[in-house]
Nucleic acid binder design. Structure first.
Lengths: 300, 300
DNA sequence: GTGATGCCATGCCACCAGCGAATGTCGAGC
DNA sequence: GCTCGACATTCGCTGGTGGCATGGCATCAC
């Protein structure tokens, strides 16, 4: 059944006249007359009594009226809901991101998103790239901020990648370190140094994955997170490799050196979405914000 | 919007395949494909992602689905409600009737109606004919059981009348009365008798309206209702005119005489419905029951 | 790799549903 | 009795809708 019939019915019932309803609905009288006749045929009963002046609802019509109202209201609500989703007056945005991105990049972008679209419910899950992609694939997340190294390429047949930045790896040394004044160093110059490494397995992976094979760093100190690591470095206990993304601002007590371009590992940060699936509107709107949130410190 | 689109949408969403939905709905695949496209155009957004094997809901589609379900369910409920009304599995029957009819005629018919259609809510209002007709006209009652005398004809342009019976007026006399053995009497034979009249104004009207002008009954006793009146008659205190309709059964202690046809007033009992209005299904079903409930005692 | 298969989109055609304009019908009111 | 207002009906036409056939794409079997 066409809901236009119900709208016509409602209007006729309200105005008590086919002719008046036709005027209001921009139809001809004959059209409305036949639409009512069609509706009556479909229901198998008369819904209006034809009076000398206009029409009046029958018992059946009176029964139908609230249903027609409810159906049309719900239809309008459906349109509104879909439209709200489209214009970001409703909906949700579930971001998944790897730990380093959660330090600053993703929170900044999420904050900007929430400011722009306060009615969209945002949520954030932290995890390692393979897990994030799995969540994305199962629909538990709408977008995943992931890192890709040559060692672990991402299946682009399953995921659409939006490149955010190429991550820079910095060498943190104490201000009194012999290389503290340098802008750029080569890895070979650090063979004699002791490294402060993270205790987390992820950091192991980072170090191993990031550095050229054959380079065997000396590790004397293990610190859990970036803040502790930087403390050790500042105290001159060793040097550390720090992803630029982990630096929320330039620290005062350590020097940050860039690696020579040939030594720098290539870790590309992407926002990933499910391939073949149209991203929810919130994701489409979120991606540009991720790029706008970039700090010049982070990428080369 | 055609609700068929919503049904197609629902089926496609459920089966995850346009082709499968087409099979189930007895459409061709192309038809369903374009119906989905039409729905998407109407909403201004994609509601399905086209995958290599079938389709999957987008965020917008997921939002729409519960609305589609609700709309279709409500539509089905509307059809059912109208149909129930039609088949008397629901609805109401509001009967208005004049007092004498409420004695036995209408209750019997209502009981039969309720037995046949227990899910229809029945109600009954008692009143005098002009009031009843007014209620009918304003829609407060669905059908009115009214009496019509030559003195008060009913406007048949406003009301459709269904003749139920021509009311018989009986003369109640005690078993020891001089006419107790007669079957028929003439009014002129009763001039010497004392009449037991009702105290109600209605009874005054009945007596005056029923009897030929010029006949002046002698009234010594006034009794409120038919039972009391019959009690007086049985005790030999006088005689009474009783509408046959008021007799729920043949009483043992009084004799009931018919009036000679020429003396009998013509009061026609009708079921009245609003002219020009299709009666509610319950009324259509109720009218035959009124005639079937007739007691042979009542009418000539 | 190559053909077969399954799925969706689309071009084309035929059909009919629904619209508008005009006319018919009926009752009310003057 | 005439006019007016309101709904129904008829007729011709157009646009929408479905079916058929085809094409593109991805997957699967061999």
């Amino acid at each position: 059944m066409d809901t236009v019939l119900l709208d016509v019915f409602r209007t006729v019932a309200h105005l008590g006249s086919i002719t008046a309803a036709a005027r209001r609905l921009q139809f001809t009288q004959s059209a409305v007359s036949r639409q009512i006749a069609t509706l009556e045929a479909e229901l198998g009963t008369r819904i209006f009594d034809r009076l000398p002046r206009g029409v009046a609802l029958t018992e059946e019509g009176r029964t139908l009226l609230p249903h027609a109202d409810a159906i049309l209201d719900r239809l309008a609500a459906a349109r509104r809901a879909v439209d709200d989703l489209h214009t970001l007056r409703a909906g949700r945005l579930r971001v998944a991101a790897f730990p380093t991105a959660v330090a600053a990049l993703v929170p900044r972008a999420l904050a900007a998103f929430r400011a722009a679209h306060p009615e969209v419910a945002v949520s954030l899950i932290e995890g390692l790239t393979p897990t994030l992609l799995e969540r994305l694939a199962t629909g538990e997340a709408d977008v995943a901020v992931v890192s890709e190294s040559p060692a672990g390429p991402i299946d682009t047949t399953r995921f659409d990648l939006h490149h955010i930045l190429d991550e820079r790896l910095l060498v943190a040394v104490s201000r009194t370190h012999r290389l503290a004044r340098r802008r750029t160093v080569r890895l070979s110059e650090l063979e004699a140094d002791s490294f402060v490494a993270g205790s987390a397995h992820a950091e192991e992976t980072l170090l191993r994955a990031s550095l050229p094979t054959g380079f065997r760093p000396r590790i004397d100190i293990v610190a859990a997170d970036w803040t502790g690591k930087l403390g050790c470095v500042a105290a001159g206990l060793g040097i550390a490799l720090i992803p630029a993304l982990a630096m929320r601002s330039k620290p005062a007590d350590v020097a940050l050196l860039r690696l020579h371009p040939d030594d720098e590992p290539t870790r590309r940060i992407h926002a990933a979405a499910r391939a073949g699936h149209t991203p929810p509107p919130a994701v489409t709107s979120f991606l540009p914000l991720l790029k706008e949130s970039l700090d010049p410190l982070w990428s080369r």
